[in-house]
């Protein structure tokens, strides 16, 4: 309860929390805010015609249309769902994989610990975006492939973090006490150790959600992610690439093709970063020096 109170009294984290709630509302109300013309495929952005040149905001298209007449407003509303889904799913699975491998390493110790940590080192040797891009391409592109690739190279940080914390907590008296009573290892891990070292991991995860959404939209921008016409901010932004420069005389003529989707993406990431930053300060003052 105090956590929530602190989150809402600090002006910076309050802004972050409100923004985040706004995005969640938009995602939840997407079918009302932007009714899909084809309910079976809500993520496909409706297009009016096939002309290349973007059209400025009008009554039919409040935010205008981008290259290929895709409706920007629709793409932004449904893109919020895409962003939330990517951020939560990728981070969620990465955390579970990381915690599993990290606890396994810490609880087993010995050669098992050594091997698992070397595997972590090797996966960490890859530059994240390069590895994700390569794996997603090898898997055949598309948003689901991008998500798999991001989990494959995104779990190691959590494994390291939880392993270190478990090793520290394992030697505390209350764990020895539990062992003395005769509790088995799984019970000790789940009831006594994990609850005491899960917070840094959760804080780290909150901070990572924003980055994961950035990376996924980067991959879409590079042409490895979402298929053409899918409601994804990164892709809508990539449509603006040719228009924000080639516009003889007036460079801001097609401003709406970049500002709306890029603004949504930046605010989304900012909201998670602000909330994560605040959570870090509130829940775990020790972590501050370690980042």
């Amino acid at each position: 309860m105090t956590t929530l109170k602190k989150l809402l009294t600090n002006p910076i984290s309050l802004v972050g929390t409100l923004l985040l709630i706004g995005f969640i509302l938009v995602a939840a109300l997407a079918p009302i805010l932007a009714p899909p013309p084809r309910p079976a495929e809500p993520y496909r952005i409706p297009r009016s015609g096939f002309k290349i040149e973007p059209k400025p905001p009008s009554e039919d298209h409040p935010f205008g249309t981008t290259e290929g007449q895709y409706d920007i407003y629709y793409a932004m509303i449904w893109g919020t769902r895409t962003a939330l889904r990517i951020g939560l799913v990728v981070t969620g699975i990465s955390v579970v994989v990381g915690i599993t491998i990290g606890s396994l390493a810490a609880m087993s110790g010995g050669w098992m610990d050594e091997i698992l940590m070397r595997v972590v080192d090797i996966f960490m040797a890859f530059p994240f975006i390069v590895a994700a891009m390569v794996l997603a391409t090898l898997l055949g592109k598309g948003l689901d492939k991008v998500m798999i690739a991001m989990v494959a190279f995104g779990w190691m940080g959590y494994a390291r973090l939880i392993r270190g914390d478990i090793l520290a907590v394992r030697e505390k008296e209350f764990v020895t006490a539990a062992r003395a009573i005769g509790a088995n290892r799984l019970r000790i891990l789940f009831r006594h150790i994990l609850p005491n070292c899960i917070f840094p991991v959760l804080v780290q995860a909150t901070m990572q959600i924003g980055s994961m959404v950035i990376w996924a939209s980067t991959l879409s921008f590079l042409g490895v992610g979402a298929p053409e016409g899918y409601a994804d901010w990164g892709q809508v932004i990539s449509f603006s690439r040719n228009w924000i420069v080639a516009s003889g005389g007036n460079p801001f003529r097609y401003w709406y093709t970049l500002i709306y989707p890029a603004g949504a993406l930046v605010l989304f990431v900012l909201s998670w970063n602000l909330v994560g930053d605040a959570l870090r300060d509130i829940l775990d003052p020790k972590l501050r020096g370690r980042m």
């Binding site: 980067t218 932004i237 924000i244 970049l258 890029a262 993406l265 930046v266 990431v269 970063n273």
Partner: peptide
Amino acid sequence: SLPTFVAGLIAL
């Protein structure tokens, strides 16, 4: 918080 490709497009 600014994605590299957005920063790049703005610079462009």
